[in-house]
């Protein structure tokens, strides 16, 4: 696919589906939408009359809000369905829920689900465009795209960079989307974390596994940390968050190993003092709030692009 106007994707399930040209096209589109959010009247009529459903099977304030803001700035009608208000607790299957929603003829369904692969399953039952807002430990493509957009703003290029991703790689959909995204754009991704949080075969996704935090961060252009959970379903991953903070967090001292103009990223919400000490999270190299701002622009772009293919 050439880098022209055409966008061949009806559904957005993962970074995996995008070529380098696709990504450039999405980022350019997002760039053009970013300005809208700085106007006094932050609304364009582009998606007027379109229905967007936020189908969130997992609690998420930030991502849901970001998609909702994006949809409303495009003048779409948005509706939120979350597990407590939907009927999945009564034993309704995803297929049932999907068929019911589909019968109301939405244009776009944005799905967040704790099970990897659920968005793909959803596409079997609906006509609407499906956008994956995070599925299990699989993918979170809009997060990956907003991270690329943020890095591009601060580095002007997405090729030839060293990107360090530190923390819980095993359970992170953000890590997978970013490994795919950055490597596809021509940057090198280095991952590091406690061995309990590094999945088997991560190198086969294109990342380089480091033996130490120093190795991961040294001369990096981008230092990205991921949110940590001490335990998941009785799986003892870490002795304590305190120890994690002392052994694995990006301290100012560690950050000095990176390039002087390196940027610090985190998909949020940050466990302050765990993944990042406050002085780094709020320091001059942190672009965490830029990520949030760009999230709206990227999501506006995705809504626009999938509607262009209907």
């Amino acid at each position: 696919m050439a880098s022209g106007k055409a966008f061949a994707h009806h559904h957005i399930l993962g970074m995996e589906q995008f070529s380098r040209e696709d990504i450039s096209h999405i980022l350019a589109t997002a760039d053009s939408f970013k300005e809208i959010s700085t106007r006094s009247i932050k609304k364009v009529p582009t998606l007027r009359g379109h229905t967007v459903i936020n189908l969130f099977f997992e609690p998420s304030t930030r991502t849901r809000l970001s998609f909702e803001v994006a949809a409303k700035r495009m003048s779409a009608d948005t509706f939120n369905i979350s597990p407590t208000t939907s009927s999945t607790t009564k034993g309704e299957t995803l297929a049932d829920t999907a068929r019911n929603i589909s019968a109301m003829h939405p244009d776009i369904i944005i799905i967040r689900h704790p099970c990897s692969g659920a968005p793909l399953l959803l596409t079997r039952y609906v006509q609407a465009a499906v956008i994956n807002a995070g599925d299990g430990a699989h993918e979170h493509p809009s997060q990956g795209l907003l991270d690329l957009m943020t890095v591009k703003e601060h580095r002007t290029t997405l090729s030839g960079l060293k990107v360090a991703i530190v923390g819980d790689i095993a359970h992170s959909r953000v890590a997978r989307s970013n490994i795919t995204g950055f490597t596809r754009m021509g940057s090198a991704v280095y991952v590091y974390g406690p061995a309990t949080l590094i999945p088997k075969g991560i190198d086969q996704l294109g990342a380089t596994l480091c033996g130490s935090l120093e190795e991961a961060v040294r001369d990096a252009d981008v230092v990205m940390t991921l949110r940590i959970q001490r335990e998941r379903q009785n799986d003892p991953l870490l002795p304590s968050l305190r120890e994690y903070a002392r052994q694995f967090s990006i301290s100012q001292r560690i950050l000095e190993l990176a390039r002087p103009d390196a940027i610090v990223m985190h998909p949020g919400p940050v466990n302050r003092g765990v993944e990042l000490p406050p002085e780094v999270a709020d320091g001059p190299q942190s672009v965490i709030l830029d990520q949030v701002t760009n999230g709206v622009a990227v999501r506006m772009a995705l809504l626009y692009l999938v509607m262009g293919t209907a």
Binding site: S116, G117, D135, G136, A137, H138, E139, R173, R176, P199, K200, G201, I202, Q204, L205, Q233, D235
Partner: peptide, 18 residues
Amino acid sequence: SSGVMHEGPVATRLGLKG
């Protein structure tokens, strides 16, 4: 054995517990 498929690169790619 609390996973859902073989632990390895494919499980890692799919984000499924091995």
